[in-house]
Design a protein around this nucleic acid. Structure first.
Lengths: 128, 128
DNA sequence: GTTATTGCAAACAATTTGCACCCAC
DNA sequence: GTGGGTGCAAATTGTTTGCAATAAC
């Protein structure tokens, strides 16, 4: 995949960052780091990197998307009430992913897996 | 969970519909079925039903959310290029979900699982 | 020199919110 | 009568697009 200068900047930033980040926050961070790019360019570059399989995306319930370099295999359990999100320490679908590549003839870049429900606090408010 | 008239309408509609639907489309469908509700009410009711665990939500990359009655355990493999989405016929995480309820003390309502990559057409454009 | 990339600002679309009205109790 | 539920329209927010300026090759 051929990459532009902007895409390189973003990819290298994400690599060092090593966590999920929204496009908006990424825009601000790059600006702070004097690697400023236009907001539109940030979005366009992330889109291109996504198509190339170099960046993975997770869309939150509020419509905001979080991006990270495509090495993460980290999932969450999220409370529908307070929005708190706990990371999980396992991934039960790696093998299925491998099978899909063959059975569905689909080049799988990554997957998302998320559990939704009520956390202990929201389920049992007496816990405060 | 105490339910309003609007919430009942929506729940019964989703039950009969038996597939995912966006809030916008739901609004139009209800209107056609002479069960018209304001758009804001549709959103507010869906939110309440979600908190009650009666409706599940999946947010697409474009920020649009799809709602369905919380019985579905249906997952997809989606092409990041053309957006085509193929349903999967299995769910490998039911057992994990059960374990989470205990180990994380989290009342799990549902989960989302989705694979992203390139479909055969987009991966190998010669297929047309 | 030609083409692809960029930045800005305007446009867009889904969703949320303010507020007056209304219905159920 | 009071309080929650509702509809409408305006506001909000993340994202996308049009276009002129710029950089890459």
């Amino acid at each position: 995949m051929r990459r532009t200068r902007s895409q390189e900047k973003i990819l290298s930033f994400l690599d060092r960052l090593n966590r999920e980040i929204s496009a908006q926050e990424l825009y601000l961070e790059l600006r702070t780091a004097r690697q400023g790019l236009g907001l539109a360019t940030v979005y366009r570059s992330l889109e291109a990197l996504k198509l190339g399989g170099l960046v993975q995306v997770r869309t939150l319930a509020n419509g905001e998307s979080l991006y990270s370099c495509a090495k993460k295999d980290q999932h969450h359990v999220t409370c529908v009430n307070c929005g708190r999100s706990l990371p999980l320490d396992c991934c039960p679908v790696r093998e299925l992913e491998r099978q899909l590549q063959e059975s569905h003839n689909f080049k799988v870049y990554y997957h998302t897996l998320e559990f939704f429900g009520l956390c202990d606090r929201c389920h049992n408010p007496s816990l405060g």
